[in-house]
Amino acid sequence: MASRPANPRTPPRFALVAIVFAGVLVIAAGVLLALALRETPRGAAGTALASAIGGQFQLIDQNGKPFSDANLKGKWHLIFFGYTHCPDACPTALNEMSLALDRLGIKRDEVGVVFITVDPERDTPDVLKSYVQSFDAPIVALTGSPEAVAQAAKAYRVFYAKHPRADGDYDMDHSAVIYVMNPEGRFTATFTPDSSADAIVQRLQKLIS
């Protein structure tokens, strides 16, 4: 088979899977949107969906200050839902995102990273503050009441559920997708949580320019 100049960090098969996956997401988003528009009377409370992903939320940041969807305007954003008790994929994703931001150079101020907890019970503003401080880039970390978090997750079509363990502790199952929102606050693209900083930078540079 003729080889093509593939990025050595992105095996062709993975790239294909990613493309198919992205396609499935887009289709799923479209179906969701169609269903939402059809099944919900227009104008019903908060259902005037501009896009299937993204929407109203009202949370507080790691300093206890209110942060809503309105704060997403005027800048590109990478949005990721997770929880601080997650030892593996969540810190990896946040780290790659903050490395990506760093590599954007002069454009780094045009992109913000937002981490929204799906575990508001344990992730208080204080916990989030110390957590995101250790990453190189400034990260906005959001929490709120269980209802407020549920609303944000719903807006972003994020699934999460508590998974209790025999020892009384629990883990969170959650959608692990990095959303790219444009400066109008509209959904633009997704990354998988295992995307490398380089992959994120390359894509962002194209989007921003």
């Binding site: 601080t84 997650c86 810190p91 957590y131 250790s134």
Partner: peptide, 12 residues
């Protein structure tokens, strides 16, 4: 192991 962020309770 990876250094843990802040006062993260868990590590891997």
């Amino acid at each position: 192991a990876r250094a843990t962020p802040g006062k993260a309770e868990n590590g891997a």
